[in-house]
Amino acid sequence: MKKLSSAQVNAFNMTTRELSCKLREIVADGSERIEIHNTCGQRYIGTGLGAVQLDIYGTPGNDLGAFMDGAEITVHGNAQDGCGNTMNAGKIIIHGNAGDTLGLSARDGKVFVKGNVGYRTGIHMKEYHAQKPVIIIGGTAQDFFGEYMAGGILVLLGLNLQEGERQKANFIGTGMHGGVIYVRGKVEDFQLGKELGTADLNEEDYDALGKIVNEFASYFGHDAQEILKCKFTKLYPLYLRPYGKLYAY
């Protein structure tokens, strides 16, 4: 593998704007990999930087990788709200938990979360041909997981659940009209939005899921085969037009 020219930034006491200017400067100087240390709440890290590798130590602030276009971000800790907001391309790997609205309106790219996530993960994620965002969560999610989802793939593993314990989220996929959600373990009908159908996974599903889980396992030191052994449920939208009958013309 080609060695990337790298740089380090100490984000201690830096404002969001100072850090973002610094990062732009470093990228303009030709660095392809940047380590950011002592990160403490600075927002929009990775926004507007293009295809660069970022290793973040500490806790990045909201909107990490918002409108991101090809960066690869590894967070060695937790992420906050709005991570991957409207991201267009790239990858975010979080070795911890993430907050609300992870991957809101994402259009492409991948997000891997080792731990748990907050509310409205993958809300209004969409897809178009080859652009198909993927979000996989190792732990559990809060309510409205995949709300308004219009495309892409969401995977909820719940690896930290006890044997037989059901997923935490309610209102899963409310308003969903595109894409697919794979949930590992137990999820009851009452936890699902009324626009969803459930099915067992077919070969194609296992194919897609296998690739995602393998990549997930490789980042966080899991055994992919062990994860895939458990039963998964496929959640899919019943209607392309969930609200088509709402109106009188």
């Binding site: 909107d63 809101l104 392309l240 037009r241």
Partner: peptide, 21 residues
């Protein structure tokens, strides 16, 4: 239209009431 909005053809293009961020 689907190519411009970047959503599949024939699906409703739903804009939620609030911006959820």
């Amino acid at each position: 239209v689907s190519a411009t909005r970047m959503i599949p053809q024939g699906t409703d293009a739903l804009s939620p009431a609030p911006q959820h961020d």
